[in-house]
Nucleic acid binder design. Structure first.
Lengths: 247, 247
DNA sequence: CACGATTTTATGTATAGACATATAGAGACG
DNA sequence: CGTCTCTATATGTCTATACATAAAATCGTG
């Protein structure tokens, strides 16, 4: 009878490091359904002898899977395949300039209106801030190859983002500026559909009553509102790539 | 001169384990902008003495930050704060039954049409499969408190998901069934806006020409198409929560 | 049997040390 | 001055060991 462990099989396959191979091996069993949700994964000691390595190594593999929400580890009980309650995916939203650039189209930007004012009740409600001093209100238009791509209506809390006072939004779109200068901790997106009113239709060069996609994004840093933005896209498809976690 | 390290400060704070405190500490510096994108984080050896712990411990903290894409580690060069090129966020889309349940509203489901057929050219194009045998085509409607919530038009590749032949889609919505029975590895969402045509307006009980949100979702397992679905929601807001990664 | 105390056990964190590996930067050479 | 090689170095992986911690399982008692 052989003393060979699965380690040989994995090692012979190719290069990646051992813990990564263990991770991939377990991931495979979960994704193929061999180990369905709720299934108890072998104890670390069993995996140690199965793969012929130390506990730290299998633990590292399991930790990464746990961080990726694929498994759940419970002391004394063991490690279990998580029951998916959500289609969990990583959503990456580029800022519009980068997005248009990635499409190989020329980016155009036009500042329509930019004003600084003391926040009124509507501004505070929109930002979700109880009290605020000054805000910047911006309206602008993004275009790709000189065709209107989206219009943007944004409010920035100047107390939370004082650096914004010095930014030149006539030349740099506020989304890009914020993305590269202002760290954030939470964001919430609300996606909906509307039909273009007269104003939006004129700005986007589409018919009144044409469908538009709306993305409302609120951004916070440690629960403090930073900015609220509404983006209006002509109804043509706007793509979001969502991949299973764990590269 | 004191031999005290930052470890004392962190430890005294409260409970979490050391490596987690280190992670949180570094995360804080990044999020507050103290360490801006591109900044080189102190070498592991410096962090060792700063926090008064072993290299494995700081390495574990840094590894988690790297897995969360907050930092980038390069051999010999060091560890750097990543320049965010995307608003990266975790998107969680519940299946519609769970979503309505979470809202505290009663879920209603109605199968409109369900047929099994040999895939035609249009089916293959929609699934993105070069060749397929049989498919299941499903049309159904979801409602919340007896008000139409969304209509669904779905195609399932029976070769890739043979278990679907035995499922009873008259009682269980296909989205829920698939989520709980079929593991997947990749999904792609395409979100757009349309106006309701006569048929959609009738099914959703809205006016013709009213805005609707469309979500097209394609799901694969190891590059093999499993299902393609189009969901049509009345234009009222459909919320997606996106949070900064790394809890 | 109910219920609280004790034991057992699987994971969680931390350590020191070792070797692997990629690569930035220095130095050699044409 | 460019390019090539070599070396120093920071991260990457792995081990063996130790103790901490949470919770399931067991035991003991009223």
């Amino acid at each position: 009878m052989s003393l060979a462990t699965d380690r040989d099989k994995l090692q012979s396959a190719d290069k990646p490091t051992l813990y990564k191979q263990i991770r991939i091996d377990i991931e495979r069993r979960i994704l193929t359904g061999e180990w369905p949700p709720g299934h108890r994964i072998p104890f670390e000691h069993e995996l140690m002898s199965r793969y012929g390595c130390s506990r730290m190594t299998v633990s590292k593999a399991l930790s990464e899977l746990a961080q990726a929400d694929l498994i759940e580890r419970r002391r004394k009980a063991g490690t279990f395949v998580r029951r998916p309650t959500f289609l969990s995916a990583v959503l990456k939203i580029a800022d519009i300039r980068a997005e248009i650039g990635a499409l190989g189209r020329s980016y155009g930007y036009e500042l329509i209106q930019c004003s600084r004012r003391t926040a009124n009740a509507a501004d505070r409600a929109r930002l979700g801030a109880r009290k605020t001093g000054k805000v910047i209100a911006i309206a602008c238009r993004h275009s790709a190859d000189d065709v209107p791509f989206a219009i943007e209506d944004r409010l920035i809390d100047l107390d939370a983002v004082p650096e914004a006072a010095a930014a030149d939004f006539a030349t740099e779109p506020p989304g890009s500026w914020l993305l590269h200068h202002v760290p954030w901790t939470e964001a919430e997106h609300s996606i909906s559909a509307v039909v273009a009113d007269e104003q939006a239709a004129a700005a986007l060069d589409i018919a009144i009553g044409a469908p538009c996609l709306v993305i409302d994004r609120h951004t916070w840093r440690s629960a403090r509102p930073l900015t609220a933005v509404r983006l209006l896209y002509p109804g043509e498809s706007h793509k979001l790539i969502a991949r299973f976690k764990g590269g």
